[in-house]
Design a binder for these strands. Structure first.
Lengths: 212, 212
DNA sequence: GTCTATAATTCGATAGAC
DNA sequence: GTCTATCGAATTATAGAC
């Protein structure tokens, strides 16, 4: 059989025309993120897209190739925010923290399943995606890291602080069902809590920076 | 076909005799936690146990029933530590935090995949397991919560603080592959970082409590 | 490009011998 | 209780008509 061309990165406008290819990608994105790779059936994606199963293979050759595409895009999206904020040379440390937290909480309110999806698939297949993270050393040489070191005179490992910032911001969304259960929260109450965290997390981080 | 009895909670010694049933459970535990329900094949479990596929169904009737058993046990194990520590009436707030962090980091060093597994399966099937959490209101009426309220005079929502404590403790293990990648860490360096956190997290939590 | 129908494979579960 | 062999359903992928 003649291998069909896979069209990729065609430089279209972001939120996309109603191309069949794009419809499939959008549907795949939705279903993969909700259920993960293994639990997703190609039929689910086809149905979600309102299209036929055969078209998936026509455009993307296989479930796995489609998944890899989606996964890569999601990881890049997830990492993008960090890079931009951390390397902004004209903002203060405090503003960077505020920006980071607000940006990610906004992102996660619209896509709550994203981090669990990424981290689960990353663990399932570390060697495959971990190279594509695309931040790496950029983080360690960032303006943000220098500012932390200045502010704390090296008292806190900058990396640990970034872990803390990510943990405080992202973890509640990963543990959402658990937290809703033990806190007896409805979705809007959970959202409320996350809004509070948007202002609290920067204060908490700030208090860590001040530890002698 | 005659339904066979499923033996459950037989009151054996904890880490168990070499019963076939127990071998299967141990193997299932290992494979399910590593790969999740959907990606696990019953054949994997049988192979891991060094036994035949048919025995799984003989002892546990189905993949799903076996999974539910494992899942329930894991959730209980994961929640147990909290309950005990939070309700200890004779320890100070600070000691409770120290105990919580040390206990969980020790647990997670020996079972790093546990939280991602639980949270992923909980999201995949919220209505099924969420009732069995077994903490619920116990947490809100705990000695721990009262101590937080006293210490901060209600300045911090106790629930938010517990979220923070869990986030700072658990998140690094959930994000382990990502953190190892962006930090260029080997496993022993990662473990080192977690050891540092054992002493740092209580300090960070403490600094949050002191915010005016 | 898009569809229907189906091939090929995988996987959970069971029958039946021992 | 344990095994081998196999059934049947589900699922990915493809062939071929339009």
């Amino acid at each position: 059989m003649i291998p069909r061309k896979i069209s990729v990165a065609k430089k279209k406008t972001p939120q996309e025309d109603g191309t069949t290819e794009e419809k499939i990608k959008q549907a795949a994105r939705k279903v993969f993120i909700r259920k993960g790779f293994a639990a997703t059936r190609t039929r689910d994606i086809a149905e979600e897209a309102g299209l036929n199963l055969a078209l998936l293979n026509y455009y993307f050759r296989s479930k796995e190739k489609l998944f890899d595409l989606i996964m890569l895009e999601n990881m890049q999206q997830f990492m993008l925010g960090m890079k931009d904020i951390f390397n902004n040379e004209s903002s203060t440390l405090n503003v960077k923290v505020i920006d980071f937290v607000a940006n990610y909480i906004n992102l996660l309110k619209s896509q709550p399943d994203l981090p669990l999806f990424i981290l689960h698939e990353l663990k399932a297949n570390p060697q495959k995606f971990v190279e594509n993270v695309g931040v790496k050393k950029v983080l360690f040489e960032s303006h943000f890291f220098k500012q932390i070191n200045e502010a704390t005179k090296g008292k806190i490992d900058s990396f640990q602080l970034v872990i803390n910032m990510m943990a405080l911001t992202v973890f509640p969304f990963i543990a959402c069902p658990l937290l809703k259960s033990i806190g007896n929260l409805k979705q809007n109450q959970f959202d409320e809590l996350m809004e509070e965290r948007k202002v609290m997390i920067p204060r908490w981080i700030n208090s860590m920076l001040k530890i002698k």
